[in-house]
């Protein structure tokens, strides 16, 4: 009886240990699996309007319009802010922290988008 209890405890410890190790490992894996994303600025809109990426990913916006646009965080304080992007110019930002990041074009504020970082 006593022996079987010890075995059970041992198994539990080992299983928990693996679980903790596994969880840590998968966390590292998620960090390592940064998936960079592209957002096209076209026809006065961000496409896709919402992108979801793992933490550590870089999102790059490219302006395909004949008119300049900006990519500016809607939060206060602003998480990110591009300079003015003329035709074919790009802006990149690396999102290190999980969260939801709304943004807009400060020149044409009807243009809005969101980056969800997991």
């Amino acid at each position: 009886m006593r022996r079987s209890v010890s075995v059970a405890v041992l198994i539990t410890v080992v299983v928990l240990g693996f679980a903790v190790w596994g969880a840590r490992n998968s966390g590292v894996a998620a960090q390592g699996k940064a998936q960079n994303a592209e957002v096209k600025i076209d026809n006065f809109s961000f496409g896709p309007a919402m992108v979801t990426v793992p933490a550590g990913s870089t999102v790059t916006w490219t302006n395909h319009d004949d008119i300049p646009h900006t990519v500016v965080s809607a939060d206060d304080p602003k998480a990110f802010k591009s300079k003015v992007l003329d035709t074919d110019e790009k802006f990149s930002f690396t999102f290190t922290k999980a969260g939801s990041y709304s943004y807009f074009c400060s020149v044409h504020p009807k243009m809005t988008g969101k980056v969800v970082v997991q």
């Binding site: 809607a74 943004y103 807009f104 809005t112």
Partner: peptide, 13 residues
């Protein structure tokens, strides 16, 4: 002469 192009808010006019 008025200025209505500064401090525009997301989604706004």
């Amino acid at each position: 002469g008025l200025v209505n192009v500064m401090n525009l808010k997301a989604g706004g006019l």
